[in-house]
Design a protein around this nucleic acid. Structure first.
Lengths: 189, 189
DNA sequence: AGGCCCATGTAATCTGTTACATGATTCC
DNA sequence: GGAATCATGTAACAGATTACATGGGCCT
């Protein structure tokens, strides 16, 4: 029961179609949850059946019609109930981390390549998040924004994404450096 | 096919029983993967059937007997193959992040409480990781260790865990502060 | 005509979690 | 005798991924 609440949260301040949600929960601005389109379409059906959201058909001329959803009173209540429950810390499950853990028995070059690739991806995400934060706060300074803007939840969530990717970038670069330096030592010796 | 390789990686430099692996993959030093005992016992059976690990019965007097596993040549080859494949960036799926995203419509106090709780958990993990890093490098300085120690994979992985938890702690504390400050403003206004 | 974006799904499979079960030994 | 640790599982369910499927409209 987790995607459920992520969808409710995403629909809080705006109505979206499954397709639009799929973009939000995919790459890019998926700064607080991730899910595939198939999951979302299925979840939206379930949520509407449960009365937590309500859908509305939108007729479009230049595009296929779509169905957009908004959170109901019941949905809001469910989200508030959820916000009150305890949540366990999430755990990292990253293939690359496994490879680094095992690197001493592996082909070091392959791991370095992947670390550098991941670092590039992190840079792209950092740029994206930084941009989104800028858009969210507009002309106001960050402190000012966080103190007085009506809505700050999405901003704080995005800050988390930014910090996470910065940490990610640093670690990838650091690890690649360490592994490179050792390769040099071995080749020299 | 991911737990599979995490188990292989864990068995690389030491033989372990399912029970011991369960401790490694649970809380504490689960710095590179997480799994429950049930998953591990099942995975170990599958891995042995596939010939990637081989088990050995150990008779104990003061405790129930156990079965410990080591990686075979085939297992090592599989891990190396895996290390060469591309891996997608992992995504965060954290309930608490959803709650913060939605905080503008939620009970702020409940969210703050959970952020502070999470911060405490992060502190505990930081202490654990820092301690493990100290043990791993012994008397040698970190730079020296990373340049010359034979095995550094587990060290780099643990550094990642440490950085991640530090980031986590900072964000939780920051977010709790921001939300607290706003509560004060609202109450004052 | 071919490729891309919009829009929405079904089906099969894999992975992870929760609940339940069993039995030995050690420590208090 | 009861709790904790060691040791190993089974069964049911929930959640996520992969593969497959369909169809309209726009742009070149």
């Amino acid at each position: 029961m987790a995607l459920r609440h992520a969808v409710l949260a995403a629909l809080l301040d705006h109505e979206y179609s499954g397709y639009q949600l799929a973009k939000i929960f995919d790459t890019g601005v998926a700064n607080f949850w991730h899910a595939l389109p198939q999951q979302l379409y299925a979840e939206l059906v379930k949520l509407e059946e449960a009365g937590l959201i309500s859908g509305r058909r939108v007729i479009q001329q230049d595009r296929p019609n779509k169905r957009v959803y908004t959170v109901t009173q019941l949905g809001l209540a469910e989200l508030e109930r959820f916000a009150g429950t305890e949540s366990k810390p999430s755990c990292v499950r990253d293939d690359l981390l496994v490879k680094v853990y095992a690197v001493d028995s592996m082909d070091t070059n392959a791991v370095i390549t992947q670390l550098l690739g991941r670092a590039e991806q992190a840079k792209a995400k950092i740029a994206l998040f930084a941009d989104l934060l800028r858009k969210l706060r507009g002309d106001v300074g960050e402190e000012e924004f966080l103190r007085h803007n009506e809505q700050i939840g999405p901003y704080l969530a995005c800050q988390r994404g930014l910090r996470l990717e910065q940490e990610n970038l640093e670690w990838c670069a650091h690890s690649a450096n360490v592994l490179n330096a050792r390769m040099a030592v071995r080749d020299g010796a």
